[in-house]
Nucleic acid binder design. Structure first.
Lengths: 197, 197
DNA sequence: CAATTTATTTTGACCAGTCAGTATAACAAA
DNA sequence: TTTGTTATACTGACTGGTCAAAATAAATTG
């Protein structure tokens, strides 16, 4: 049944994610994935074409989930600044979660050059992220609290700052700096948007 | 003689760099390094403990060179804004060079979690980068053209923006966007430093 | 200087281990 | 029975690292 297949695929993707966050993309073997999913090795090859196919689906799934959460976080908010605050809270959700996700994400980034499919998934992710930034900026322009020369450039800048801060935080391997980087990220974005009031 | 050994090591490091930028860190084999260096396979193990040792030296060498170039670029400049401009020009040196270096750098970032030595090299690189940012900020504060609440936070923010933009540019695989991202990076930093005049 | 010995460097075959992917058998459900 | 699913054994390709022998350079000696 199609439902069962879907469940199995999810189970395998979650296992691959857990394995990758603990061991790193390249060193994860098909056996590892099977072990984490508590199934035999043959199952992974039954549901996915090959290892790269597993990871393509994994990255698609992860980036999709991340975007949905981030997009949801801003929709309840009523002012641009509150939207941004909610966004940053969602992005810097916790040291543990950020570490798990961003380790896999950095592995993923390092693989993009080798795989056209990965590249397209990431392009979609960027576009989704930019759309969130764009919403916040437009709201702030309506409210007259932000001032930017070019909306597209500002949306791109927001994501640069977010990824740049999370990656730098991750590389320093110090959970205590999480709040510090969160506040640097938030303040920098406000400055880039030329926040007044 | 010690001089010859040094030359050989450099030759191997350059080969490893070239191999890594073309094939990606994980898929580079000792044989690849030997091939690019035009020596036999055993030589690499004669001059380095193992593969990880080669890459530790490689990363140290690369990040050191990058820092030196960046540091040198700002020293001739007389105003804070010109220093920043020179810095960004050096950072966004050309699509080809940025691609070569940043591909290896992203691979390197994805390996940091697995290797204490890599982590320390990167920490040193960050501190070097921050010191460049700090020089520029201090100069701008003297000149009364910048305004920041916290110098340390601003130095960190600058590197976040630089890495964030270069990584995002790299992932989009479009050389034409190089100038675009360069200008976004430059403008964002000016805004973070609250540039007036 | 030349002959010989010693030290250093280079080579490439080889080994032991790993992994992705396959083949096949066993099992379960309909 | 038939079809869909899972387990297991296996293969072939490849890798990091080793090592003994070859090549080369340096030092020593007559």
């Amino acid at each position: 049944m199609a439902k069962k297949a879907e469940t199995r695929k999810q189970q395998i993707l979650k296992a691959a994610f857990q394995a990758a966050s603990e061991k790193g993309y390249e060193s994860v073997t098909l056996q590892d994935i099977a072990d984490y999913a508590d199934v035999s090795k043959g199952v992974t090859n039954y549901y996915f074409k090959n290892k790269a196919d597993v990871f393509a689906h994994l990255f698609e799934w992860i980036t999709g989930r991340i975007y949905e959460k981030e997009a949801a976080s801003i929709h309840e908010q009523e002012t641009a600044v509150k939207m941004l605050e909610a966004y940053i809270n969602q992005v810097f959700i916790s040291p543990a979660e950020n570490k798990t996700f961003y380790r896999v994400y950095v592995d993923y980034l390092s693989q993009i050059k080798n795989n056209k499919a990965y590249q397209e998934i990431n392009q979609q992710f960027y576009e989704n992220c930019w759309s969130i930034g764009r919403s916040i900026i437009n709201k702030g322009l309506e409210e007259n609290v932000f001032s930017v020369n070019d909306i597209e450039e500002a949306t791109i800048s927001i994501r640069c700052i977010i990824d740049g801060s999370l990656i730098q935080w991750l590389m320093r391997e110090d959970d205590q700096l999480h709040d510090y980087y969160k506040s640097i990220c938030y303040d920098s974005i406000l400055r880039v948007l030329n926040y007044k009031e």
